[in-house]
Protein backbone atom coordinates (compact mmCIF):
# COMPACT_ATOMS: atom_id res chain seq x y z
CA UNK A 1 0.00 0.00 0.00
CA UNK A 2 2.74 2.45 0.98
CA UNK A 3 6.29 2.26 -0.11
CA UNK A 4 8.82 4.78 1.26
CA UNK A 5 12.17 4.69 -0.52
CA UNK A 6 15.24 6.54 0.63
CA UNK A 7 13.21 9.50 1.90
CA UNK A 8 15.21 12.57 2.86
CA UNK A 9 13.59 15.72 4.19
CA UNK A 10 14.76 18.89 5.87
CA UNK A 11 13.27 21.86 7.62
CA UNK A 12 15.02 25.22 7.18
CA UNK A 13 18.28 23.66 5.94
CA UNK A 14 18.35 21.15 8.79
CA UNK A 15 18.09 17.52 7.63
CA UNK A 16 15.51 15.62 9.68
CA UNK A 17 14.86 12.48 7.67
CA UNK A 18 18.00 10.87 6.31
CA UNK A 19 17.00 7.99 4.09
CA UNK A 20 13.87 6.30 5.37
CA UNK A 21 12.90 2.97 3.79
CA UNK A 22 9.62 1.43 4.79
CA UNK A 23 7.07 -0.91 3.19
CA UNK A 24 3.56 -0.98 4.59
CA UNK A 25 1.37 -3.74 3.24
CA UNK A 26 -2.41 -3.67 3.06
CA UNK A 27 -4.05 -4.46 6.39
CA UNK A 28 -0.85 -4.04 8.39
CA UNK A 29 -0.27 -1.97 11.47
CA UNK A 30 3.17 -0.47 11.80
CA UNK A 31 4.44 1.39 14.83
CA UNK A 32 7.22 3.93 14.59
CA UNK A 33 8.90 4.47 17.92
CA UNK A 34 11.82 6.56 18.88
CA UNK A 35 13.18 9.20 21.20
CA UNK A 36 12.12 12.85 21.00
CA UNK A 37 13.56 14.64 18.02
CA UNK A 38 14.20 11.46 16.08
CA UNK A 39 12.01 12.56 13.15
CA UNK A 40 8.87 10.50 13.91
CA UNK A 41 6.41 13.39 13.65
CA UNK A 42 8.25 14.80 10.66
CA UNK A 43 7.71 11.51 8.85
CA UNK A 44 3.96 11.64 9.52
CA UNK A 45 3.80 15.30 8.45
CA UNK A 46 5.74 14.73 5.24
CA UNK A 47 3.46 11.82 4.36
CA UNK A 48 0.37 13.99 4.93
CA UNK A 49 1.80 16.82 2.83
CA UNK A 50 2.72 19.59 5.25
CA UNK A 51 4.84 22.06 3.29
CA UNK A 52 7.07 23.18 6.16
CA UNK A 53 9.32 20.34 5.13
CA UNK A 54 11.35 20.09 1.98
CA UNK A 55 11.81 16.64 0.53
CA UNK A 56 15.35 16.53 -0.82
CA UNK A 57 15.56 12.96 -2.02
CA UNK A 58 13.65 9.70 -2.32
CA UNK A 59 10.12 8.83 -3.24
CA UNK A 60 6.89 7.63 -1.71
CA UNK A 61 4.48 5.44 -3.64
CA UNK A 62 0.97 5.20 -2.26
CA UNK A 63 -1.37 2.79 -4.01
CA UNK A 64 0.49 3.21 -7.26
CA UNK A 65 0.62 7.01 -7.10
CA UNK A 66 3.55 9.27 -6.46
CA UNK A 67 2.40 10.58 -3.11
CA UNK A 68 4.75 13.55 -2.99
CA UNK A 69 3.10 15.04 -6.09
CA UNK A 70 -0.26 15.28 -4.36
CA UNK A 71 -1.70 18.20 -2.39
CA UNK A 72 -2.76 17.42 1.19
CA UNK A 73 -6.44 17.34 0.23
CA UNK A 74 -5.71 15.02 -2.70
CA UNK A 75 -4.03 12.64 -0.28
CA UNK A 76 -7.15 12.78 1.89
CA UNK A 77 -9.32 12.03 -1.15
CA UNK A 78 -7.06 9.09 -1.93
CA UNK A 79 -7.82 7.67 1.51
CA UNK A 80 -5.07 9.03 3.74
CA UNK A 81 -5.78 10.42 7.18
CA UNK A 82 -3.51 12.15 9.67
CA UNK A 83 -4.42 12.29 13.32
CA UNK A 84 -2.60 15.36 14.64
CA UNK A 85 -0.34 15.39 17.65
CA UNK A 86 -1.61 18.90 18.31
CA UNK A 87 -5.07 19.24 16.77
CA UNK A 88 -5.71 22.79 15.60
CA UNK A 89 -8.41 25.13 16.92
CA UNK A 90 -10.77 26.69 14.40
CA UNK A 91 -12.63 29.45 16.28
CA UNK A 92 -16.27 29.97 15.35
CA UNK A 93 -16.56 26.71 13.40
CA UNK A 94 -18.70 24.07 15.03
CA UNK A 95 -17.30 20.59 15.17
CA UNK A 96 -20.34 19.12 13.45
CA UNK A 97 -19.91 21.53 10.57
CA UNK A 98 -16.30 20.47 10.01
CA UNK A 99 -17.16 16.77 10.34
CA UNK A 100 -19.97 17.01 7.82
CA UNK A 101 -17.91 19.05 5.38
CA UNK A 102 -15.04 16.56 5.65
CA UNK A 103 -17.23 13.49 5.22
CA UNK A 104 -18.95 14.97 2.20
CA UNK A 105 -15.74 16.27 0.62
CA UNK A 106 -14.30 12.77 0.73
CA UNK A 107 -17.53 11.10 -0.37
CA UNK A 108 -17.64 13.41 -3.35
CA UNK A 109 -14.22 12.21 -4.46
CA UNK A 110 -15.24 8.62 -4.01
CA UNK A 111 -18.19 9.21 -6.29
CA UNK A 112 -20.69 8.84 -3.47
CA UNK A 113 -23.69 11.12 -3.00
CA UNK A 114 -23.62 13.74 -0.26
CA UNK A 115 -25.03 12.51 3.04
CA UNK A 116 -28.26 14.18 4.05
CA UNK A 117 -28.31 15.94 7.40
CA UNK A 118 -30.37 13.17 8.99
CA UNK A 119 -28.16 10.38 7.60
CA UNK A 120 -25.07 12.18 8.77
CA UNK A 121 -26.46 12.70 12.25
CA UNK A 122 -27.27 9.02 12.55
CA UNK A 123 -23.76 8.07 11.50
CA UNK A 124 -22.04 10.55 13.76
CA UNK A 125 -24.11 9.50 16.78
CA UNK A 126 -23.03 5.92 16.22
CA UNK A 127 -19.38 6.94 16.19
CA UNK A 128 -19.75 9.22 19.20
CA UNK A 129 -20.96 6.23 21.13
CA UNK A 130 -17.87 4.23 20.19
CA UNK A 131 -15.63 7.06 21.31
CA UNK A 132 -17.71 7.61 24.47
CA UNK A 133 -18.19 11.23 23.56
CA UNK A 134 -21.13 13.41 24.47
CA UNK A 135 -23.27 14.88 21.71
CA UNK A 136 -22.44 18.33 23.08
CA UNK A 137 -19.07 17.87 21.35
CA UNK A 138 -20.71 18.40 18.02
CA UNK A 139 -21.76 21.90 18.92
CA UNK A 140 -18.51 23.13 20.35
CA UNK A 141 -16.04 24.98 18.17
CA UNK A 142 -13.42 22.73 16.60
CA UNK A 143 -10.87 21.88 19.30
CA UNK A 144 -11.49 25.19 21.06
CA UNK A 145 -11.24 24.74 24.80
CA UNK A 146 -10.94 20.95 24.39
CA UNK A 147 -8.80 19.14 26.91
CA UNK A 148 -5.87 17.13 25.56
CA UNK A 149 -7.87 13.93 25.82
CA UNK A 150 -10.92 15.44 24.15
CA UNK A 151 -8.82 16.61 21.23
CA UNK A 152 -7.41 13.12 20.66
CA UNK A 153 -10.82 11.48 20.91
CA UNK A 154 -12.06 14.00 18.39
CA UNK A 155 -9.26 13.02 16.01
CA UNK A 156 -10.15 9.34 16.23
CA UNK A 157 -13.81 10.23 15.82
CA UNK A 158 -12.87 11.91 12.56
CA UNK A 159 -10.95 8.84 11.49
CA UNK A 160 -13.97 6.68 12.22
CA UNK A 161 -16.14 8.94 10.09
CA UNK A 162 -13.72 9.29 7.20
CA UNK A 163 -12.82 5.58 7.01
CA UNK A 164 -9.35 6.05 5.59
CA UNK A 165 -7.36 3.42 3.72
CA UNK A 166 -4.16 4.52 5.41
CA UNK A 167 -4.26 6.18 8.82
CA UNK A 168 -1.26 8.07 10.16
CA UNK A 169 -1.62 8.50 13.90
CA UNK A 170 0.87 10.97 15.32
CA UNK A 171 1.41 10.60 19.07
CA UNK A 172 -2.26 9.88 19.53
CA UNK A 173 -1.53 8.52 23.00
CA UNK A 174 0.21 11.61 24.35
CA UNK A 175 -1.71 13.54 26.96
CA UNK A 176 -4.20 10.75 27.61
CA UNK A 177 -5.11 9.33 31.00
CA UNK A 178 -5.58 5.58 31.37
CA UNK A 179 -9.32 5.60 30.60
CA UNK A 180 -9.01 7.86 27.59
CA UNK A 181 -6.10 5.76 26.33
CA UNK A 182 -8.30 2.69 26.41
CA UNK A 183 -11.15 4.41 24.57
CA UNK A 184 -8.82 5.78 21.92
CA UNK A 185 -7.06 2.42 21.58
CA UNK A 186 -10.36 0.58 21.18
CA UNK A 187 -11.44 3.20 18.66
CA UNK A 188 -8.36 2.36 16.61
CA UNK A 189 -8.79 -1.40 17.03
CA UNK A 190 -12.33 -1.12 15.79
CA UNK A 191 -10.97 0.27 12.54
CA UNK A 192 -8.66 -2.68 11.97
CA UNK A 193 -9.50 -4.35 8.72
CA UNK A 194 -7.75 -6.35 6.00
CA UNK A 195 -8.19 -3.35 3.69
CA UNK A 196 -6.85 -0.71 6.04
CA UNK A 197 -3.29 0.04 7.08
CA UNK A 198 -2.16 2.08 10.05
CA UNK A 199 1.08 3.86 10.84
CA UNK A 200 1.29 4.62 14.55
CA UNK A 201 3.86 7.12 15.71
CA UNK A 202 4.50 6.90 19.43
CA UNK A 203 7.06 7.45 22.09
CA UNK A 204 5.71 4.90 24.55
CA UNK A 205 4.67 1.31 24.45
CA UNK A 206 1.45 1.75 26.39
CA UNK A 207 -0.79 2.34 23.35
CA UNK A 208 0.78 -0.69 21.71
CA UNK A 209 -0.48 -2.85 24.58
CA UNK A 210 -3.99 -2.11 23.34
CA UNK A 211 -3.35 -1.76 19.62
CA UNK A 212 -1.01 -4.63 18.80
CA UNK A 213 1.17 -3.69 15.84
CA UNK A 214 2.34 -6.18 13.25
CA UNK A 215 5.68 -4.39 12.95
CA UNK A 216 7.65 -2.03 15.13
CA UNK A 217 10.38 0.26 13.80
CA UNK A 218 12.75 2.35 15.81
CA UNK A 219 13.63 5.73 14.40
CA UNK A 220 16.67 7.61 15.62
CA UNK A 221 18.56 10.52 14.05
CA UNK A 222 16.31 10.41 11.00
CA UNK A 223 16.92 6.78 10.16
CA UNK A 224 15.22 3.50 10.94
CA UNK A 225 17.73 1.75 13.15
CA UNK A 226 15.83 -1.38 14.01
CA UNK A 227 12.69 -3.24 12.96
CA UNK A 228 10.88 -6.16 14.51
CA UNK A 229 7.53 -7.46 15.70
CA UNK A 230 5.56 -6.22 18.71
CA UNK A 231 8.01 -7.76 21.15
CA UNK A 232 10.50 -5.07 20.13
CA UNK A 233 8.26 -2.48 21.74
CA UNK A 234 8.31 -4.36 24.99
CA UNK A 235 12.07 -4.62 24.86
CA UNK A 236 12.37 -0.89 24.29
CA UNK A 237 10.08 -0.19 27.20
CA UNK A 238 12.41 -2.22 29.43
CA UNK A 239 15.73 -1.10 28.08
CA UNK A 240 15.08 2.37 26.71
CA UNK A 241 16.36 3.91 23.48
CA UNK A 242 19.91 4.49 24.58
CA UNK A 243 21.44 1.31 23.21
CA UNK A 244 19.79 1.83 19.84
CA UNK A 245 20.75 5.48 19.51
CA UNK A 246 24.37 4.59 20.03
CA UNK A 247 24.20 1.86 17.40
Amino acid sequence: MLSIRNLHARVIEKPVLKGINLEIGTGEIHAIMGPNGSGKSTLASVLAGRDDYEVTDGEVIYMGQNLLDLEPEERAWAGMFLSFQYPVEIPGVKNIYLLKAAVNAIREHRGLPELKASEFLKLVREKLKVMQMDEAFLHRNVNEGFSGGEKKRNEILQMQLLEPTLALLDETDSGLDVDALRVVGEGINQMRSPERSVLLVTHYQRLLDIVKPDFVHVLAHGEIKLSGDHTLAEKLEREGYEGIEAA
Binding site: G49, P72, A76, I90
Partner: peptide, 21 residues
Protein backbone atom coordinates in the same frame (compact mmCIF):
# COMPACT_ATOMS: atom_id res chain seq x y z
CA UNK B 1 -3.26 22.28 6.66
CA UNK B 2 -5.51 20.70 9.28
CA UNK B 3 -8.61 21.29 7.18
CA UNK B 4 -6.93 20.19 3.97
CA UNK B 5 -5.96 16.86 5.52
CA UNK B 6 -9.71 16.49 6.11
CA UNK B 7 -10.33 16.74 2.39
CA UNK B 8 -11.08 20.42 1.98
CA UNK B 9 -9.50 22.38 -0.86
CA UNK B 10 -7.29 25.26 0.16
CA UNK B 11 -10.02 27.77 -0.71
CA UNK B 12 -12.72 25.87 1.13
CA UNK B 13 -10.40 25.66 4.11
CA UNK B 14 -9.83 29.41 4.05
CA UNK B 15 -13.56 30.04 3.74
CA UNK B 16 -14.24 27.86 6.71
CA UNK B 17 -11.72 29.70 8.88
CA UNK B 18 -12.96 33.11 7.75
CA UNK B 19 -16.63 32.24 8.15
CA UNK B 20 -15.90 30.99 11.65
CA UNK B 21 -14.24 34.32 12.35
Amino acid sequence: FYLRTRGMSEEDALNMVVNGF
